[in-house]
């Protein structure tokens, strides 16, 4: 059909298209990730949870869904879309939205998927897929455990002096972490991903108008975001420092007497403001460094 075409076109060639991923393509990955991870979460909503005592034996999420998109298409946009899909499709539309804790879940999941997706450099490499799946669950659950612990530390006065409290919380979080790693990370993460990622490699990209990824090749479009990633990571870790600092302060003051409220409230405020200033300053520095580096390129 096309072999008889003359090599010369009549019209003047005006462009040959660029190799970088374009904004619409990023938007497609974002929407796709949101829709599919949202769907996966609706399914989990229907499956009854099995809990034995305090231990939850349920599947936390279908890790293979965002991992597949992050590994094949674009880790940043897949990481951005997936947790949003969870919030929108299940929490919001099923009437189960929980305000601030959604935000914390979003940050955790975003970091987890972005890091794991960036680790998978070759979509046909099994060890990398395994590592990716375990990283998603590991990072997300670790961060959420830290946040949970922080809540208890902030919420309970002199928490470390309460008999058995630190141990019991650590035990529950630790057991939960292990179970999630096995169920969500391996059974519903690494094993399905090992099959799905190679199966979709080279099939899903043309549907989105993209070129399939060549193993090992760094993806255009992900590099400029590395700076942002660092910013977010530093932000998140500083946030946890705020909690840690509060805890230390609590210890040094020891027992607080009746006029506790005003003092405590004020100091809390100053500590928060201080931490915020540090975070913003760091973010601004990193941002300008990144912009200069990009301008150099």
């Amino acid at each position: 059909m096309s072999t008889t075409q003359a090599p010369e076109r009549r019209g003047a060639l005006r462009g040959i298209g660029s190799a970088r991923t374009s904004t619409p393509q990023n938007l497609m990955v974002f929407v796709l990730s949101m829709a599919l991870f949202g769907l996966a979460n609706i399914l989990l909503e229907i499956i009854p949870d099995v809990t034995i005592g305090p231990v939850d034996l349920s599947v936390a999420y279908f890790v293979f869904v965002p991992l597949t998109l992050a590994a094949l298409l674009n880790p940043f946009w897949a990481a951005l879309g997936a947790p949003l899909g969870e919030i929108v499709f299940t929490d919001l539309l099923m009437g189960d939205f929980s305000g601030l804790s959604e935000l914390e879940g979003f940050i955790q999941m975003f970091l987890a998927i972005y890091v794991a997706g960036s680790v998978v450099r070759n979509p046909r490499s099994r060890p990398q897929i395994w590592l990716g799946a375990l990283l998603i669950v590991g990072i997300d659950k670790f961060l959420s455990a830290v946040v949970d612990l922080a809540k208890v530390w902030v919420g309970v006065e002199d928490a470390e002096y309460v008999q058995g409290l630190p141990q019991s919380i650590l035990l529950l979080e630790g057991v939960g972490f292990g179970i999630d790693l096995v169920i969500s990370g391996i059974l519903f993460g690494a094993l399905p991903a090992m099959w799905l990622i190679p199966a979709l490699h080279g099939r899903i990209e043309p549907l989105l108008g993209m070129r399939p990824r060549v193993p090992g090749e760094p993806r255009p479009g992900t590099v400029p975001w590395a700076g942002w990633f660092v910013v977010v990571a530093v932000l998140a870790s500083l946030l946890s420092f705020v909690f840690a600092f509060l805890e230390a302060w609590d210890v040094s003051i020891g027992s607080v007497e009746a006029d506790f409220r005003g003092q405590y409230g004020d100091t809390f405020l100053w500590v928060s403001v201080g931490a915020l200033v540090v975070v913003l300053a760091l973010a601004a520095i990193l941002f300008s460094v990144w912009r200069r580096r990009r301008a150099d390129r």
Binding site: G53, G164, L171
Partner: peptide, 11 residues
Amino acid sequence: YLALAATLFGG
């Protein structure tokens, strides 16, 4: 659950 666990550790 938290109370049970705490009792376990001598709370």
